[in-house]
Design a protein around this nucleic acid. Structure first.
Lengths: 128, 128
DNA sequence: TCTCAATGCTGTGCATACCAAGCATTTGGT
DNA sequence: ACCAAATGCTTGGTATGCACAGCATTGAGA
């Protein structure tokens, strides 16, 4: 069982595994055992264990509960769950659209925020 | 049989029903039948029907597919699904969600952009 | 009238999310 | 050494997501 060994890769390709590992790291950083997290989330510890090992795709309710217990914003968890990355248009103008339609900002503020956003895009990746 | 009637309320309290009605409205605005949406999403039309009527809580994969087919940003769908209402304040945070999930930004850039955005909110409207 | 296509909805069944109980290993106290 | 408690994991069962086939209704055209 040595040669065909399947030790966990440090960067799992499977989005389920990525999500699970992310949750496990967050839990360990919070110094919580599986049972403690189970008590906080009201989700059974065996299932949490399986989720962390990428054996199951947790439901929205479970993800929300975990995010809440670990004080991780839900969006980040869903991002880790591969929610926004696959079928969505990846060059998304979602951020621009959100800024433009944000009624809490004045027009000048929208303009400024878009400027900052676009400058970030240029500095980070130029080729697209 | 009239008094104990249970006609659907115009503003359903159940988050499942809210999500379902939101999806139904979006589908009808796109002039799509259940079967057409079914073809786009590769999700059976009976199940779509049940989701729209709030009889089931769709999985992440289904939600993502629906959002994609209806050209609705996933974040908005999840907000409708009552996803972000736990740890964060449930206001109009579409912009924050968009920034947070923007894969073209680094984490530092996201943080910075959120900082700018929040500072704008404070200066423009304080009492809401 | 009848027909036929398109709509949304109902049943039945399989796959999977999720839980309760218990096992294997480690750690620390006596 | 023994025991007790805590850790993560395995097993078997139940609830629910989801699909396939088909029903009921409506509307257009012959």
């Amino acid at each position: 069982m040595a040669t065909t060994d399947e030790t966990e890769s440090t960067t799992p390709n499977n989005p389920r595994q990525m999500l699970g590992e992310f949750i496990r790291v967050q839990r360990q950083m919070a110094n919580l055992s599986l049972r403690q997290l189970s008590a906080l989330t009201e989700i059974s510890n065996p299932y949490l264990s399986q989720v962390e090992r990428g054996l199951h795709e947790p439901s929205i309710r479970v993800l929300k509960s975990i995010a809440n217990a670990l004080n991780v914003s839900s969006e980040i968890l869903f991002e880790q769950a591969g929610l926004f990355t696959s079928t969505e248009d990846p060059g998304s103008e979602a951020t621009e659209a959100a800024i433009r339609t944000d009624r809490r900002l004045s027009e000048a503020q929208r303009h400024a925020l878009l400027g900052v956003y676009r400058s970030f895009l240029e500095t980070s990746e130029e080729g697209d």
